[in-house]
């Protein structure tokens, strides 16, 4: 890796100030993507600003939503009893990210800010219609995920928390890439009183997206059989040495079916 200065921020305001003062600062929010990137010399920030001490690790349930602090690690979300009770899909998603080490370092804020097209969390945030709270504003999930590795965040904006509405039912099923075990296709299904929301990660060329045909079919009848015979267009889907767009299209429907069955 290239030499870089590591600093620890005291709170969000301090982090924002340090970020503004740096030539090319990067926020460290668990580092499960950033640190490997640095090690491979694919990034060379002059300053790494660690958010670990900013008091952003928390989980609170309020009425019909769960608010998760940006620096809450995946293991804490997976193991939280309110999350498991209110939103089992979210708990199982968090418990299936990476391995034990990754789950105890990686954070929800880091994951959604990076918006890796194969990351799991964006599927939950989008399917649940979540809100991303930042140092400046609140951003709806629909507006937040802009494209592959791109979000609506400004350069100097810091995620502080994510609020995720509690669905009636939820499940997340991932078909892991055999090598990396990132999502090759991951489907989050959330049933709300006013309809079903389905978000797909791992498959879209522009990152996470909602599968409207599947949503319509499941809103009409929340049953795996509602997806029988459904085919997805492969337009806009990723193809690589592990899976073609056609195979990913097939897996989206199949994983959605399994997610409904798991609800």
């Amino acid at each position: 890796m290239y030499a870089t200065d590591y600093v620890k921020a005291a709170d969000v305001a301090d982090a924002a100030a340090k970020l503004a003062a740096a030539d090319d600062g990067k926020l460290l929010a668990g580092g499960q993507t950033l640190l490997p990137t640095l090690k491979q010399r694919l990034a060379s920030p002059d300053k790494l600003i660690d958010l670990a001490g900013c008091g952003l690790s928390s989980i609170s349930k309020s009425g019909d939503a769960i608010k998760i602090g940006a620096m809450t690690c995946h293991a804490d979300v997976a193991n939280h009893k309110d999350v498991a009770a209110a939103n089992p899909g979210l708990a199982s998603l968090a418990g299936g990210i990476g391995d034990r080490q990754v789950r105890n370092c990686g954070t929800i804020g880091g994951s959604v800010a990076n918006n890796d097209p194969a990351a799991c969390y964006p599927a939950a945030v989008l399917a649940l219609g979540g809100t991303i709270h930042t140092s400046k504003r609140d951003i709806a999930a629909e507006d937040f995920f802009v494209g592959m590795f791109e979000t609506a965040l400004d350069e100097d904006e810091i995620i502080t928390a994510v609020t995720l509405p509690t669905p009636q039912k939820s499940a997340y099923i991932k078909f892991p890439n055999p090598a990396s075990r990132y999502a090759m296709v991951g489907v989050f299904v959330a049933q709300f009183a006013d309809g079903v929301r389905v978000a797909v990660t791992g498959a879209g060329e522009d990152g996470v997206f909602r599968a409207s045909d599947i949503e319509a079919a499941l809103t009409a009848k929340f049953d795996a059989a509602s997806l029988d015979g459904m085919t997805m267009s492969e337009d806009g889907l990723m193809g690589d040495i592990h899976a073609s767009p056609a195979y990913r299209a097939h897996l989206i429907v199949e994983m959605a079916r399994r997610a409904v069955a798991a609800c």
């Binding site: 090598a179 990396s180 990132y182 592990h242």
Partner: peptide, 23 residues
Amino acid sequence: LLENAHYDENGQLLTASYMDYCM
């Protein structure tokens, strides 16, 4: 079942890390 070294048509090794080479 899992492993395969894959070069693209330009001779670039696409499976040059554990992200793509499946142990």
